[in-house]
Each structure stands twice: as C-alpha cells, then as structure tokens.
Write a protein that binds this DNA or RNA. Structure first.
Length: 111
RNA sequence: GGAGUCGGCCGGAUGAUCGCUGCCACGGUUCCACCAUGGCGGAGGAAAGUCCGGGCUCCACAGGACAGGAUGCCAGGUAACGCCUGGGGGGCGCGAGCCCACGGAAAGUGCCACAGAAAACAGACCGCCCGACCACUCUGCCGGCGGUUCAUCCGGUGGUCUCAUCCACCGGUCGAAGCCGGCGAGUGGUCGGGUAAGGGUGAAAAGGUGCGGUAAGAGCGCACCGCGUCGCUGGUAACAGCGGCGGCAGGGUAAACCCCAUCCGGAGCAAGACCAAAUAGGGGGACGCUGGCGCGAGCCUGAGGUGUGGUCCGCACUGUCCCCGGGUAGGUCGCUCGAGGCGUCCGGCGACGGGCGUCCCAGAUGAAUGAUCAUCCCCGACAGAACCCGGCUUACAGGCCGGCUCCCACU
RNA sequence: GCGGGUGUAGUUCAAUGGUAGAACAGGAGCUUCCCAAGCUUCUAACGUGGGUUCGAUUCCCAUCACCCGCU
C-alpha cells in the first residue's frame, strides 16, 4: 500500500485478528490481489534495528504466502514485547495469521 | 615470561537460488508511467546522543552600542570550532605516561557553617619575658651585732740545744647558732608594658629551614629556598635562567555576582524552489431575465432552472459560461562529485598542507539488505543512512599490528 | 529536525553550599475482650560518573532514564 488515504480506508472499517505479537487489520480492495501495509510503532519497538528487522520478516513472510491470500489490503501492527521475542516464534505467528486469512471468505468491497 | 601504557586497524567469510532497491543499456507501445532482460552498485565505526563548529537555503541587515550566550596559558593547524597538534606551567605515577575551565581577588559587592581568642583587620586566649607592688618560702651572698669549743694558718714571746722540730701562752685570721638590714632566687596574685618563637581550633590564621641575636622574642641580622620588582640573556610567545634591589606587600572563593579579552543576526532540507486536481471562496470579462426603484453601479420581487414526488399544489436550493491569481491533496526538484576515497612524492617534530596519478563508492520517501541451502572458523558485540561535512561524547563480542615502560628468570 | 522540563524514603512532595524534612505507607509497643481509630517509637532516599570548593541534593560538565511541545 502506497498512500495515507489507502491506509485510512483500511483503518476506517477493518476486520481484525490478533495474537500476542501482531494485530492484523484488513479490508477487501476489489483489485484482484492482496496488498501489504506496515505500522511498526516506535512505542512497541524502540530500536531502529529491531523495527527494520520486523519489517523485513513481515515482508518476506507476506511474499511467500501472497499467492494464497484473498484480495485484501492488510495492515500489520506490532504489539508490546515484539522486540524481545524470538525470531522463530515471530515467524510461526505470521504463518498462522496468513493461513487463517487465506481460509476466510471475504465479502466484496461494499462501501 | 608477567604487569602496564600509548597509537593504528578489523568488526564473520565464500558460493548458489528466490526476492527488495537506485542508476545505465536495449526492448515491450510514440513520450511519461509501468513491465521484461542484462550489467554495475546498495548502511556504520559509531549510521547513535544532538554537545559544539561549518557548508547550503530562506528571512532580516548602513554602522555602532546595550542585553544575552560561549570561550579563556602560548604558538600553530583548519572552512570553522568548545576540536586537533606542538610547547610552557601545575598535579599524580618508580616509569612509559596520564590529568588540569590554567585570565583577573592592590575595581567593587557577597559568602566562609562547626570549632577557635581571633575568619579578614588587625589585633592577642593560653603561654614567654621585663618592671612596680603585695604575700609566702628559701638556700645563697654582703654588712653589722654576737662571739663558745676544736682544728688549721700567720705573726710574736718563752721553754727544750743555734737552726729545724716539738710544747705552752698571747694577738690576729677563719668561724657555727641566733638577731637586724640589704641584695638575690622561687611561687602565687594585681597592675603596667614587651612579644608573636611555642600551644590549641580549623580547609585556611601576616613565608619556610638553620645560625646568630635578645629580657623574651621578632626578617631584628645573615645564608639558602619562596615572593615582589628592575635589568640582562635565551625563546615568535607562554615561560625559563642569571644578576641587582626590596626584608616582604599579604587569606580563600570568580564552575558566587562581577571585570577584562575574543567570538556569536535568526531559522532550519518538514529549509527552500517548481508543477498542480476536486470542493468552497476571491478578482475580471461576456451573455441571459418578469415587474418596480435609480442617471448609473446596484437593490427588491417574481419567473425560469435543479432536487423531492406518479402528477399538480407545496417544500428546499439557485444566475450561466470563460479567464486570472493564491492555494490543499498529490507530485517533481533540492539529493549526492564531496573541505571525497585510495596510492605515491615533497614540505613540516606534528596536527596538517601541496603536487601528481587513479576511482565514482547508498540516495530510500509506509522508507530498501531478507529467506533457504552448502562449506569453514574463534559461532559473530554495539547497533540501521534520511541534506552534507569536521569534531566531541556514549555503546561495543572477539581479534590483529606497532612503539615505549617496569619487574622476574636465563644467556 | 528543532526545543523544553523532571529525576530526593515503598508513594506524593519540600529543603540559602554547612546534620536531608513532612504526609501517607511498613515494623514494634501501648490502649481495647478483639478490630478500627488514637498515642509512642523505629526502618528507609538525593538517577549515575567526574570536576570546582574546606565542604555539593544544591554550582559546572558528561551520561542514563522518563515526560512534554513545535514542525
């Protein structure tokens, strides 16, 4: 996702799912493919190195699961404690999120 | 071999596949955008903290002064600095070496708790010394009175045999106790003076040590050191050395106010420049409209139009078109060739400067480095560019190189 | 990117450069048949590291943590 207005459209009327590490907000976009947005707050993750690392991991994981996802705009938010979590745990958490998202029936993007 | 100190450097490596991103080339459609293929790149020594200094951009500005802030031994380096280099001075360390906001307290103001006699301006609590007086004590000295016994000594006379010796007597000398007077010493007290050596308090109380000197003392005198001042010499200078003179000024604190010298305009790439939808509003022009008022700009009124509604009534809204400028969303530039890196030569103790050669080495903008696999090792710390650069500071697994110092052992 | 503020007992706050204090909380005791309240008493702190000073919570520098503002 590229612009502030696209993010705002998701935050306006999102569907959501969360676990200990991440909160995912999504909304159908009617474009025929899924798009990713990141919101890694400085409050939950103080060091720039950790924020960049999490963004890389989310991007890579999204890239590998993208083919099975419905046509939604999804925004990934972090929760507190993410900066001290183990990498493999974060990776598994992301995989569960994508699998769950791919099984959902997403209603078309009605305004 | 051990301990230490200073300086420099590295910050996992290699390969394969799938991805992300910038530029270039050639294509896919004609340009842009986008896509494909190929090539070349793609986080740090601190990218960090934002503590200083500059470049760049915009705003302001004749010059000066005040206010405010910063800096503060000297010289140099630099675009500049609160940085660096070299030197001086002080402190610490056996040493290599390390540390220092290191101008001014005879311009003024403030503060210095407790203790102490006294904390800033010269004084004096104890003590020491001198003098006077009073009281007491005492051995000592002098003079007078007194004068016993013994011994000594001197002189005389006599005896024994001249002398010597011995004996006796006389005189003198000496002389105990006691009394009187004077002197002296000591102790205590009062008063008057002289001292700042010593004691004690403190972080700090009118230089230090020694000798002389003195009633006791004192730079009172002298020597050395310290201080001040003058001169000479060395040094660009800070400063150092030597010599003369002065016996000696006068507490500390300026990271308390302050004084002196030097420097500083303000903001920051979200600076700034440009392009520019939709909606509302501003300016200008043209056109259109029932009636009324007005010379006119215009005002009032309705009609007309749009929406609601099956239709009428009703209700709500309302000139149309074109141009201009500001400007929001959004976008483009600024944006990386630079006080640049590497190599080499020259100048300089050095920081650094100069010449030549060579290289182009991140430029994102919801913000790029990841995933999987293989091999190796010491199994990988602190940590992610956001306009750029020079410093400082802070964080950091492990490792490499070099200089120097101290100790131990052996040769 | 720029700028400001605050760190003191377990908590909330004070304090001219000269012994760090108050309230609440906690412990012990008294009081009560017991509890509460009350009374007495005790414990406990200057974020960290340097420097200036005789002496620093206070002054200066650095650093760490937290909070806030502008764009």
């Amino acid at each position: 996702m590229l612009t502030a207005s696209e993010y705002a459209r998701v935050f306006e009327r999102p569907q959501r799912a969360s676990d200990r590490w991440f909160t995912l907000l999504w909304r159908a976009n009617g474009r025929g493919k899924s798009r990713l947005g990141l919101a890694i707050s400085k409050k939950n993750c103080r060091r720039a190195v950790d924020r960049n690392l999490i963004k890389r991991m989310v991007r890579e994981s999204f890239r590998r699961h993208r083919g099975r996802l419905p046509a939604v705009d999804v925004v990934v938010l972090t929760r507190r404690g993410i900066d001290v979590a183990d990498r493999t745990i974060i990776r598994e958490s992301l995989q569960r999120h994508w699998q769950r998202l791919s099984l959902l029936n997403v209603e078309p993007a009605g305004e």
